[in-house]
Amino acid sequence: MTEQSFNTLIKCEITASTAKVNGQTILQRTDASEDWFSQLYHAIGMQYPKFFKMDRLCKAGILGAELLLKDFDYDRENVKADWGIILMNSASSLDNDRHFQETIATDNYYPSPAVFVYTLANIVTGEIAIRHKTGGESSFYVMPSFDEQLMNTLVNQAYMANPELTHIICGWVNVDGEEVDVRMKVVER
């Protein structure tokens, strides 16, 4: 087992019905008629219109990062080369791939650039990097299932390979149809 070279500062979880920060429930879904991600967006007072253009995987990741960082004391104005992002999931961008496929399933279709652009899983790391101005390591892994030990190994390796890195937003962001499974954290060297 690799020795852990970092401390966890804050954790969050989002499922299809609950959002938690450090184990404390922030929001429980009560209204099934309203989109869950939009409910959470409004509940935490997020102000980021680009959110509504994102696919569901990016919405999940950006909400997770928001839960982690909305009250976190960090530099919000400048790009931070000492902040990195390492995420993983099992469904890749399949949720949006299906949606895109539906939009082109007719004759004389007009493929939507705004839908197509999200047919890559690692776009979620880019959206988080843009929102929080992180400029360090950024990687996304598609794995069979969540493996926390592997996640920690990847974080350790990132710290070894990038001496300037101090903080890493990392974890699992999986969205596939009804399934929403977000387990993210901020770690510090």
Binding site: K53, Y110, P113, A114
Partner: peptide, 9 residues
């Protein structure tokens, strides 16, 4: 730029 493409569509 993605919005620009959407407007072209």
């Amino acid at each position: 730029s993605i919005d620009a493409l959407e407007l072209i569509v």
